Simulated assay, not measured.
Amino acid sequence: MFSTKQLSEEQIATIKSWAAAGARLPDIQLKMHEEMNLPITYMDTRFVILDLGIELAKDDVAVEVPDDLAQEESHTGGVQVTMDDMPLSGMIVSGKAVFSDGERAIWTIDQNGQPGLEPETAAYDPTEEDIVEFQKQLRALIQSLRE
């Protein structure tokens, strides 16, 4: 397991500058490996970021989810899926989804690999087509973590 004690002050400053410039967790992991010659796992990178108290930009993987009402009203259809840089507590990964009808949900995968989908509207049930597209985009996001 990797520890922040293995990092020099210069390396810590560099990691903080990457985050300040908008680097995402996978970007930081890759840069630590390539530029600092530190082969580090995604999970260990997460812990380093947490240990150093670094704030990362939120939800900048894939397509951005609209935040205000005007943007929601202009939703053009299709499914949009994003992944959180810092997963929700107790989850391996989490993120947000906007379905073709504009309905929004939070998705999670827990430490047992169990998926979850929590729509904002209690009884909302996405269409079969939206679920297929959601799964396709989610697979692509998770695959990007492995690369």
Results as ranks from 00 to 15, higher is better:
Ala20Asn: 08
Ala123Phe: 14
Val79Cys: 01
Pro66Trp: 03
Gly78Tyr: 05
Ala20His: 01
Gln71Tyr: 01
Val48Arg: 04
Thr14Lys: 15
Lys16Ala: 07
Gly113Ala: 10
Asp110Phe: 09
Leu7Cys: 06
Asp110Tyr: 05
Asp51Trp: 03
Ile92Tyr: 02
Ala123Asn: 09
Trp107His: 05
Lys31Asn: 11
His33Arg: 15
Gly116Ile: 03
Ala62Lys: 01
Pro87Tyr: 08
Ala105Thr: 02
Asp27Leu: 00
Ser89Asp: 11
Ile54Asn: 08
Ser100Leu: 02
Met86Ser: 13
Ile54Leu: 02
Val81Met: 03
Asp125Gly: 01
Gly53Val: 06
Pro26Gly: 10
Thr4Ser: 14
Gln11Glu: 15
Ser94Tyr: 04
Leu30Asn: 11
Thr4Gln: 14
Asn112Ile: 01
Asp27Ile: 00
His33Asp: 13
Asp44Gly: 03
Gly95Tyr: 01
Gln71Asp: 15
Gly95Arg: 00
Leu141Pro: 07
Arg139Lys: 15
Phe99Val: 08
Val132Pro: 07
Val65Arg: 09
Ala123Trp: 06
Ser17His: 10
Met83Leu: 14
Asp51Cys: 07
Ala97Thr: 13
Ser17Gln: 15
Leu7Trp: 02
Ile40Arg: 04
Asp85His: 08
Thr14Trp: 14
Gln11Leu: 08
Gly22Tyr: 02
Arg24Asp: 12
Leu30Thr: 13
Met36Gly: 01
Glu118Val: 12
Thr127Tyr: 02
Asp59Met: 10
Leu30Glu: 11
Gln80Val: 06
Ile28Ala: 00
Met43Val: 15
Gln71His: 06
Ala70Asn: 12
Leu56Lys: 03
Val63Ile: 12
Gln6Arg: 11
Glu55Lys: 13
Ser74Tyr: 08
Asp130Val: 06
Glu72Cys: 09
Gln6Ser: 14
Asp67Ala: 10
Asp110Ser: 07
Val132Asp: 11
Asn37Ser: 12
Glu128Asp: 15
Asp59Asn: 14
Gln135Val: 07
Met36Lys: 04
Leu117Thr: 00
Ala140Lys: 14
Asp101Glu: 03
Asp60Asn: 15
Glu34Met: 12
Asp125Tyr: 09
Ala97Asn: 03
Asn112Glu: 13
Pro126Asn: 08
Pro126Met: 10
Ala20Thr: 00
Tyr42Leu: 15
Glu103Val: 05
Met36Thr: 00
Val65Ser: 08
Lys96Asn: 09
Ile131Pro: 02
Ile92Met: 13
Phe134Thr: 03
Gln137Ser: 02
Asp130His: 07
Asp84His: 11
Glu120His: 09
Met91Val: 00
Met83Phe: 03
Val79Lys: 06
Ser3Ile: 08
Ser100Glu: 02
Glu129Ala: 12
Phe99Gln: 05
Thr127Val: 03
Ser100Met: 05
Glu129Tyr: 04
Asp51His: 11
Ser17Met: 05
Glu103Pro: 00
Glu128Pro: 00
Val79Tyr: 04
Thr45Pro: 05
Gly78Arg: 06
Leu25Asn: 04
Glu34Val: 11
Val63Tyr: 04
Thr82Glu: 02
Asp101Trp: 01
Ala70Pro: 00
Ile109Gln: 03
